[in-house]
Measured scan of single mutants.
Amino acid sequence: MALNTPQITPTKKITVRAIGEELPRGDYQRCPQCDMLFSLPEINSHQSAYCPRCQAKIRDGRDWSLTRLAAMAFTMLLLMPFAWGEPLLHIWLLGIRIDANVMQGIWQMTKQGDAITGSMVFFCVIGAPLILVTSIAYLWFGNRLGMNLRPVLLMLERLKEWVMLDIYLVGIGVASIKVQDYAHIQAGVGLFSFVALVILTTVTLSHLNVEELWERFYPQRPATRRDEKLRVCLGCHFTGYPDQRGRCPRCHIPLRLRRRHSLQKCWAALLASIVLLLPANLLPISIIYLNGGRQEDTILSGIMSLASSNIAVAGIVFIASILVPFTKVIVMFTLLLSIHFKCQQGLRTRILLLRMVTWIGRWSMLDLFVISLTMSLINRDQILAFTMGPAAFYFGAAVILTILAVEWLDSRLLWDAHESGNARFDD
């Protein structure tokens, strides 16, 4: 018995066209964080690309023209004298008006014999932002004059995390709450300039795509075929072959399989920071003279006294001054041990922890910024005066060393310790 099946006739004509040209192939790229070699397709503007294995951002879609970056830099340069030299806060102490600005706080630190601690604050609040705007201006002028731009481009990517104007702005709020127990506070004209400078700096850093600047100024022929001998440069993120001198053909720094002496430098910085954190938390970090009496505060006791007036601000200072430094030390110690013992479990967790400490590390400088600003506000000789204690130097040095330890660690070593050939990683 035959089955009668109805015929289905399409209502619209289906047209099949042959592909007349070869589909576009992607360029081969190595991930600078996990060293995976993959094919990167062509990316349009405002599109980002991520590593298929570790999800690290390979290409950032946010990109401004150099002219727009230069305009932002010149605007920031105009704001800087007002943000640093004009009063941020006014207080009335014992019937006398006192003005506080950024430069005055750094000068008070240096004047009291601790120039190293003052230079830490100076670099993060004044030096690094000033280098940022002058570097962008150098790129703008240098591109037109045919100057060598490689050193500036190499420095810009590392400079971003040292620009800490946003953290200093939080420190202004913390210092205001600490001082309000002794005097009446009012915002100064410099505060508005400083807030504007923070906003412009944040926007500029978020749109400063150094890798795209490398592509514009020093374009290189990408690798179009897969080759395990391809290496990625950690300076400019170019994937290719080393030249005859073993250097990256684009930025001219040595092109090595792994960062040289990464573990040794990381261990040295980490152990030194552990040693410095002990006096930083045991010795007094601030000293207040009130009517001839002397009151010393460690980091913890200062947080407890701050909690009596504002528990939320005390929580912020606790996280930045105690929780973050010790968390960074514990995480980095764990990561280094996992590399030495070739741990194969929990790779995803370790990668996330490394990215976390990379982002939060700079916030530990908050305590030094609060001390710097408070020193310029309260300084009335023996009637009422505020000065920093010996722990300030140890704390600042420990924070900087932990930042350097994270920067010096080559994250690809975590993958080397893991089993080879993993296309995915999980716990």
Results as ranks from 00 to 15, higher is better:
Leu3Pro: 13
Gln7Ser: 11
Ile8Thr: 08
Pro10Tyr: 13
Lys13Gln: 11
Ile19Lys: 11
Ile19Trp: 10
Gly20Lys: 14
Leu23Trp: 11
Pro24Ile: 11
Asp27Cys: 11
Pro32Cys: 14
Cys34Glu: 00
Phe38Asp: 03
Ser39Met: 12
Gln47Asn: 12
Ala49Gly: 07
Cys54Val: 00
Ala56Val: 14
Ile58Cys: 08
Asp60Thr: 11
Gly61Gln: 14
Arg68Thr: 01
Ala71Ile: 13
Met72Tyr: 03
Met76Trp: 05
Leu77Phe: 13
Met80Leu: 07
Phe82Thr: 14
Trp84Phe: 13
Gly85Asn: 11
Pro87Ser: 06
Leu88Asp: 03
Leu93Glu: 01
Gly95Lys: 04
Ile96Ser: 08
Ile98His: 04
Asp99Gly: 08
Val102Ala: 11
Trp107Gln: 14
Trp107Ser: 15
Gln108Leu: 15
Thr110Gln: 15
Thr110Ile: 04
Lys111Phe: 02
Gln112Pro: 10
Gln112Glu: 04
Ala115Ser: 14
Ser119Thr: 06
Phe123His: 02
Phe123Glu: 04
Ala128Gly: 03
Pro129Tyr: 03
Pro129His: 04
Pro129Ile: 05
Leu130His: 07
Leu130Phe: 08
Leu132Gln: 04
Thr134Pro: 05
Ser135Arg: 00
Leu139Cys: 05
Leu139Phe: 01
Phe141Cys: 06
Gly142Arg: 01
Asn143Val: 15
Asn143Leu: 14
Leu149Phe: 02
Arg150Thr: 03
Val152Lys: 01
Leu153Lys: 01
Leu154Gly: 02
Glu157Leu: 14
Lys160Ser: 08
Glu161Ser: 13
Trp162Gln: 01
Val163His: 13
Met164Phe: 03
Met164Arg: 06
Leu169Tyr: 02
Leu169Cys: 10
Ile172Trp: 02
Gly173Cys: 04
Ser176Phe: 07
Ile177Arg: 04
Val179Thr: 12
Ala187Trp: 13
Val189Gln: 13
Leu191His: 04
Val195Pro: 06
Leu197Cys: 02
Thr204Pro: 04
His207Leu: 11
Leu208Gln: 10
Leu208Phe: 11
Val210Leu: 15
Glu211Arg: 13
Glu211Cys: 12
Leu213Pro: 05
Trp214Leu: 12
Arg216Thr: 09
Pro219Lys: 10
Arg226Cys: 12
Glu228Phe: 07
Lys229Arg: 07
Lys229Cys: 11
Gly235Pro: 06
Cys236Pro: 00
His237Lys: 09
Arg247Leu: 11
Pro249Asp: 05
Arg250Phe: 02
Cys251His: 00
Arg259Val: 12
Arg260Met: 06
Leu263Ser: 07
Gln264Trp: 02
Leu270Arg: 02
Ser273Ala: 08
Val275Gly: 04
Pro279Leu: 07
Asn281Glu: 09
Leu282Ser: 05
Ile288Leu: 05
Gly292Ala: 05
Glu296Lys: 09
Glu296Ala: 12
Thr298Lys: 09
Leu300Asp: 02
Met304Ile: 07
Ser305His: 06
Ser305Met: 12
Ser309Glu: 06
Asn310Gln: 12
Gly315Gln: 15
Ile322Met: 10
Phe326Asp: 04
Thr327Ala: 10
Met332Lys: 07
Met332Arg: 00
Phe341His: 11
Cys343Leu: 14
Arg348Lys: 11
Ile351Tyr: 06
Leu352Ala: 11
Leu352Val: 14
Val357Ser: 04
Trp359Arg: 13
Ile360Ala: 13
Leu366Ala: 09
Asp367Asn: 00
Phe369Met: 04
Leu373His: 09
Thr374Ile: 06
Leu377Val: 05
Ile378Arg: 00
Ile378Tyr: 01
Asn379Val: 02
Ala385Phe: 03
Thr387Asn: 05
Ala397His: 03
Ala398Val: 08
Leu401Ala: 03
Leu401Asn: 08
Trp408Met: 04
Ser411Gly: 08
Arg412Asp: 00
Trp415Ala: 09
His418Leu: 10
Glu419Arg: 10
Asn422Ser: 09
Arg424Pro: 15
Arg424Met: 10
